[in-house]
Design a binder for these strands. Structure first.
Length: 374
DNA sequence: TAACCTTTGAAGAGG
DNA sequence: CCTCTTCAAAGGTTA
């Protein structure tokens, strides 16, 4: 997979973004689908969804190299477009206040009472009664009224003590929830967080996980490890808390949209939900995706500042994996993804539940997008 | 009980 | 430089 400019590039998207459904079988599915007679509206819609994806992706997910390069050229345009977004947002979008998230400031369209961007209505990220990104932002445990605000910022060498102006602007706390300290660096104390899994405000950072890696919501408040048995813990040798990877754009999108898809679909199986979300992700406009790329970029920036010495490599091997036989699911009859390929559109009664739901969801996506576009 | 499944994207490793 | 692998989330499923 082509690499983004991880350094100064500060990308908003991945280079292969235009190569949709790189995973096995999608190309095959598309071919099969296009071969079917469009006997019902749902099928038509579904096909058109794929067509739109295909057209975005130069007609196929599996193509000769020159086509891929073409994609990358196209994608470069997209990147340029995406790169523009934060520039616009620097003008103040991210200075908008947002309660519940300590670091990331959100563009106005995200605000519960803020203006709604007309471009953001296709797959709305705004949810009733809550901040639209609340479900995806892992920091909703943040308690601005935390009594403990350390005045002593860790002097650990190598840790950035002063947030760049850009960051402090981006991560400016909302008025109602702002800490009494006006020094953003006071929010971040690397050594403190590493030692205790806690944010210097006394609030644990979501990226910090117990060595077990297992999330225990009652103890961690989402991702945050809080020792419940300090004595017992003390006996064990102090293991370094696991600092998780920052979430990428799609992960942020999934966090936000998962509940919505589950509600629409009654499914809870994450594998199926994620398939739906993956397709919906591709159905998003560039602008809509740009929001998440931008959020992810800021996540990475924040993560880098919080844990300058952290590397993704640190977590390699943390998960014990069974023999990952990376089987080609196109040859795996048990793969729920392949029901359409196996049974065809005309025998959807043979499809498993997840596949039926994926299809229904795609139909829904198509309807939404078409409505929005019209 | 813990890995698997499933998705995209980021990052690292290795050829 | 390119390709492959791993890990981020999540929750039902499976070994």
């Amino acid at each position: 997979m082509p690499q983004l400019n991880g350094g100064g590039g500060d990308d908003l998207g991945a280079n292969d973004e235009m190569i949709a459904f790189k995973h096995e079988g999608d190309h095959e599915e598309k071919i099969r689908e296009s071969a079917y007679t469009e006997s019902d509206l749902a099928d038509l819609k579904s096909s058109l969804v794929n067509e739109s994806e295909i057209s975005q992706n130069s007609n196929s997910a599996v193509r000769p190299r020159q086509h891929i390069q073409e994609d990358q050229r196209i994608y470069t345009d997209k990147r340029e477009h995406l790169d523009d977004v934060p520039k616009h947002q620097d003008g103040g979008m991210y200075k908008a206040s947002y309660s519940g998230y300590p670091f990331l400031m959100l563009p106005e369209p995200y605000l519960p009472n803020g203006p709604v961007s007309p471009s953001s209505n296709k797959v709305s990220v705004v949810q009733q009664g809550m901040h639209p990104l609340t479900p995806l932002l892992p920091y909703d445990h943040f308690n601005p009224s935390a009594p403990h605000i350390p005045t002593d910022v860790s002097q650990k060498p190598g840790v950035h003590r002063h947030q760049p102006q850009e960051i402090s602007g981006f991560y400016q706390l909302p008025q109602a929830t702002r800490l009494t300290s006006t020094d953003p660096s006071a929010w971040f104390s690397h050594s403190l967080m590493l030692q205790s899994g806690m944010h210097p405000t006394g609030i644990p950072h979501p990226a910090i996980m117990p060595p077990s890696g297992k999330q225990e919501h009652d103890q961690f408040d989402r991702n945050i490890y809080v020792k419940s048995h300090p004595e017992a813990k003390r006996e064990k040798e102090p293991k370094k808390p696991v600092i998780k990877k920052p979430l990428n754009a799609f992960m942020l999108y999934m966090k936000e949209m998962r509940a919505k898809v589950i509600a629409e679909c009654t499914l809870k199986e994450s594998a199926a939900i994620n398939q739906i979300l993956g397709r919906r992700w591709h159905a998003l406009t560039r602008e809509e995706q740009a929001k998440y790329y931008d959020l992810a970029r800021k996540e990475r920036q924040l993560h880098m500042q919080l844990y300058p010495s952290w590397s993704a490599r640190d977590n390699y091997g943390k998960k014990k994996r069974r023999k990952r036989d990376k089987q080609d699911s196109s040859t795996d009859p048990g793969s729920p993804k392949k029901c359409r390929a196996r049974f065809g559109l005309n025998q959807q009664t043979d499809w498993c539940g997840p596949c039926r739901c994926v299809r229904l969801s795609l139909t829904h996506v198509f309807s939404s997008n078409t409505t929005a576009l019209l």
